[in-house]
Nucleic acid binder design. Structure first.
Lengths: 265, 265
DNA sequence: ATAAAGTCAATTGTTGACAATTGACAATTA
DNA sequence: TAATTGTCAATTGTCAACAATTGACTTTAT
């Protein structure tokens, strides 16, 4: 077994932060053991813990988390739907290759879906829809002006802005897909990489300004503009995260292949 | 138990067609029992079999398919990642509400992702990428000119064109997400609704022409144009399918809310 | 020495039983 | 009567054992 040996059970440092900020999670939906296992293993995959031997064995995880194979099977299925492992019937699950390309691809998909959310949001805009998003934006600005800034809370609040937008985008299928597939793993990953983006007040203002522009576009009914703005938010995050990762991983590949946002517009 | 009573086991008429056209499936990836259960139950959900009582009980399905609850649990997880059921921990799974809105939402998401595939395809275009897609398009044209036209084969061949494009789109994460989440359920559904679109030779030509335009756009390196064309293909399918469904369900809701492709472009 | 066939340990798929939780109904009390 | 609490059947979560399959290794024959 080549996976990292750690008897951390299901209460890692990262899982603890979930508990500290439960308001982001759906109310009355406790995180099951399977989800917690999936969170930890998913983090490991994105961190590149699974090396050349990319096997994710059921027995291995069962022993690591001190549970039986049942919950582990569920966890592996969760990781598959997040696109972090591939399951080959009767042969087992394998972690996807850890690379900057993978991270970039995830952000690019997320950017497209976020853009669609913004477009749907604008196309079915209501006064309540505008108000709720503005409320969350206001909270962000408030945090931004307070003395003690909590980096983690910034990312949570940023997610709440998008959450309000999702609540009013009138495409429940899209919201469901995003929530269970790309969203969580992406945010989880960003929560550990993104803080560097929020170090300066300027950068924070720049980020929040785009959300405000989306609301402005909503008032104008310009769904295409909102879509582009939302995509750009994710593209900016992508570039920042990749930049951070490249600094700590000098052997990384060239960045050309990582860009998906078209320049021919 | 309010679900439809049918002791069809895992070899329904629909599953049989899979076997008849295995080339579309990934080679060496046999369909597991769980996947077959998910296929049948997913079809039922899209057909609206689960009425006001939308519960999808594990025991019910286990008895219906004559297996234990293990594979059924897997099947329900598959349905969740396809966005067809919602799972509430310790409370069970519930089928999403069957409505034209759901179908439209699925197509709209699929259109966006298909557009992204096309854009990635163009942005990383290679001679081989052009050749393979053109080969599949040629097969379609060949079928179109032959005497005995097989409606089912048309849809399969149409999927092969898109499959070739996915193979060259250089975003494995996107392909993985589409394959395991939105793609199969959408195609499964279309395979039973779409044939009406291919009744006339004109309509078939019109459909295939868009794919050819995408290849042309690839030669020009116009990824934005390819994205729009790909989206339009799905929007056309959406409109046809919805039209078909509305004829058989006169009580359906107004169509305004179903459209997501922007008119402001 | 090479290739084919056979063997076997490791791993996943499946099963049935047991534990824990939930939501509804009934009993109790103010 | 209305609200609260207690009880219980139904359902999902978890577990350990068994069955089936796979991939690698060994053996064997040419």
């Amino acid at each position: 077994m080549s996976t990292r040996e750690k008897q951390s059970a299901i209460t890692g440092a990262f899982a603890a932060e979930f508990v500290k900020s439960p308001s982001l999670r759906k109310a009355h939906r406790p995180r099951s053991i399977s989800e917690q296992i999936a969170d930890e293993v998913g983090s490991d995959i994105l961190d590149g813990v699974f090396g050349t031997n990319r096997r994710v064995g059921e027995q291995d995880l069962a022993e690591r988390f001190q549970v039986s194979r049942g919950p582990v099977r569920d966890a592996i299925r969760i990781l598959e739907k997040r696109g972090l492992v591939e399951i080959f019937p009767r042969r087992g699950a394998f972690a996807v290759e850890h690379s900057l390309t993978l991270i970039a691809d995830m952000f690019n998909v997320q950017a497209t879906l976020t853009g669609l959310v913004a477009r749907c949001y604008v196309m079915s805009i209501t006064p309540a829809g505008i108000a709720e998003v503005e409320t969350e934006i206001a909270k962000f600005r408030e945090m931004d002006n307070s003395k003690n800034i909590d980096i983690i809370e910034f990312t949570f609040q940023s997610a709440r802005i998008f959450g309000a937008m999702k609540r009013h985008c009138k495409n429940e299928y899209l919201v469901r897909i995003m929530g269970s597939v790309t969203d969580e793993s992406l945010w989880d990953f960003m929560w550990r990489r993104q803080p560097l983006d929020y170090l300066t007040k300027d950068q924070r203002s720049q980020g929040i300004a785009k959300w405000e522009e989306i609301v402005d576009a909503a008032r104008d009914g310009d769904d295409k503009k909102a879509e582009g703005l939302a995509q750009q938010i994710l593209y900016d995050s992508r570039d920042n995260v990749l930049e951070t990762m490249k600094k700590s991983r000098p052997e990384s590949i060239s960045a050309d292949r990582l860009l998906t946002n078209s320049k021919t517009k």
